[in-house]
Write a protein that binds this DNA or RNA. Structure first.
Length: 289
DNA sequence: CTGCGGTCCTGAAGGC
DNA sequence: TGCCTTCAGGACCGCA
């Protein structure tokens, strides 16, 4: 009996960066006209406070998106597992009935729509999130992770090494720790460890200098590859760009969601799946030592 | 300080 | 057919 693959949904740095790039084109310069909050626990701050404010920039740090508004106001967004932002050029009344069945590519709200932002030109943005883990927060400062973003010039080998060497937890857990490295989630942690040929269960601080160097390069490499392919949207994944388009990175995975398949490294082994910290890890036991 | 386990939330899938 | 249980997971919280 084959194990049935369950696809997960989780925007990581490349997915959020792809959304940011599209959002910049779609909403930069627009003025917020209306904010409909359908899920109160997911929206922190007074929605009224951003009405009439013009969007001056869209930035990202780690997995957190921040829409810069006039008067030093920020609308920060975390999509967590199943969050989506969908842009539509024209919001009509049907959009507010909230009765339209949800689909990944519908530029309409459905039963998972949590916030609807309308702009003064009639266009709008839907924040959909099936599992309600995601959030929108209004603040007076950009909300950023405690750690350094993988794409930042400050994400140096020295910084990476310092973090790798300061914990005895498994390296896979370390890579996903947003207090140490901002932007890497389950997909890219698995892929980077495969490229660097390191077993995800290895104790972080016990990696050799050579392994740390290889892993540092691998992390940067997979993140850039993810952006190149506009993120990953396997099967029923929630992730789509604000235009409703799916990413292509899932067609270029080495090990993620490949349990039972032959190792792409050419050895005779097959990809194994284990649990670490409640999350799935995929790796080749032969290649990754 | 570090590490670890519970929690949030929903829908799909499996068992009987 | 249908109800019930289990599972998926990013980040946060509380505890040892």
């Amino acid at each position: 009996m084959l194990h049935v693959t369950r696809y997960t949904k989780m925007p990581e740095l490349p997915e959020v960066e792809t959304i940011r790039l599209q959002l910049e084109k779609d909403i930069d310069g627009k003025t917020i006209g209306r904010v409909e909050v359908l899920s109160k626990k997911q929206f922190v701050g007074d929605p009224q406070s951003i009405i009439g404010k013009k969007i001056i920039d869209v930035e990202r740090s780690g997995k957190i998106l921040s829409i810069f508004l006039e008067n030093k106001l920020f609308l920060n967004i975390h999509l967590k597992m199943t969050g989506q932002l969908l842009y539509t050029k024209k919001i009509d009344d049907a959009c507010f009935r909230n009765t339209i069945p949800f689909s990944n590519t519908d530029k309409m709200p459905g039963k998972t729509t949590r916030v609807i932002i309308t702009f003064s030109d009639g266009s709008g943005l839907f924040f959909n999130d099936m599992r309600k883990f995601g959030w929108m927060k209004i603040s007076h400062q950009q909300i950023v992770p405690k750690s350094i973003d993988v794409l930042s010039p400050d994400f140096t080998l020295e910084y990476f090494k310092k973090n790798v060497c300061s914990t005895g937890r498994p390296i896979k857990i370390m890579l996903m720790d947003q207090d140490r490295i901002a932007g890497v989630g389950n997909i890219y942690a698995n892929e980077a460890l495969f490229i660097a040929k390191i077993n995800p269960q290895r104790k972080s601080k016990e990696l050799s200098d050579e392994e740390i160097n290889k892993l540092y390069d691998a992390v940067k490499q997979v993140i850039k590859k993810g952006i190149k392919y506009k993120g990953s949207s396997a099967a029923d994944e929630a992730y789509v760009t604000p235009e409703g388009d799916k990413g292509q990175m899932q067609n270029h995975f080495f090990v993620y969601q490949k349990e039972g398949e032959p190792c792409p490294g050419g050895c005779k082994g097959e990809i194994k799946r284990i649990k670490q910290g409640g999350r799935s890890s995929f790796y080749c036991p032969t290649c990754q030592k």
